[in-house]
């Protein structure tokens, strides 16, 4: 199933951020200050790479979806900074265990890094341990974006998932519609 820019904008709209993305003002990489002084490129590459692990193989269009979603989230300086910190820790582990940055590892190695960090079994916590913060900022950030979007919901048979303002028709529709 193809993830679209519309999905990313819908996910952002649900999370209350991303004036730029929601208005279609794509400014990826154009203004280094706009992302609050963080290394936005590294965050984007790492999140796109992590999405290859945490998103199901059925979805395509992940890069554009993640990048559009991040555009909005990175507009929040505090969020961007905390995200950067989590990404840096992930890269540190990737470097020391597999000798390279997370984003350039194979998908299988990326999954191993995430597991060895403990992000699979950790409960998300924005102020918690490394595992809990990676779960919050990296893994769950991506899962939230996907499963609160119409396409993500549709994968499960729910085209109007919680968090998405999908209107008043879908709840009345039968499964065959």
């Amino acid at each position: 199933m193809e993830l679209t820019r519309r999905d990313a904008v819908a996910a952002l709209a649900a999370l209350g951020v991303g004036g730029g993305a929601a208005l279609g003002v794509g400014r990826l990489g154009r203004d280094p200050d706009a992302d609050g002084g963080v290394d936005a490129e590294r965050i984007r590459e790492t999140q796109v790479a992590a999405a290859a692990v945490v998103y199901p193989s059925e979805v395509s269009g992940t890069r554009e979806f993640v990048e559009t979603f991040l555009e909005g989230r990175l507009e929040q300086p505090a969020h961007a900074a905390a995200l950067e910190e989590a990404v840096a820790e992930l890269d540190d582990r990737a470097e020391s265990w597999y000798g390279d940055a997370f984003a350039v590892l194979s998908v299988a190695d990326r999954e191993r890094v995430l597991e060895q960090v403990g992000a699979d079994t950790a409960d998300e916590d924005p102020d918690g341990t490394t595992a809990e913060r990676i779960r919050y900022y990296v893994v769950n950030e991506l899962l939230l974006a996907l499963y609160a979007s119409p396409t993500g919901g549709e994968l499960v048979g729910l085209e109007n998932p919680q968090g998405h303002a999908g209107g008043l028709e879908t709840y009345r529709r039968g499964p065959e519609a």
Binding site: Y55, P56, L144, A148, V156, L158, P161
Partner: peptide, 25 residues
């Protein structure tokens, strides 16, 4: 709710989607 399940499990990727499909619906 699938999004709630997704954020609180120990799985991701295809395993997660399979679980969501089994548990939701």
């Amino acid at each position: 709710s699938p999004v709630g399940l997704a954020l609180s499990g120990d799985d991701w990727g295809d395993d997660l989607l399979e679980r969501l499909r089994a548990e939701y619906g």
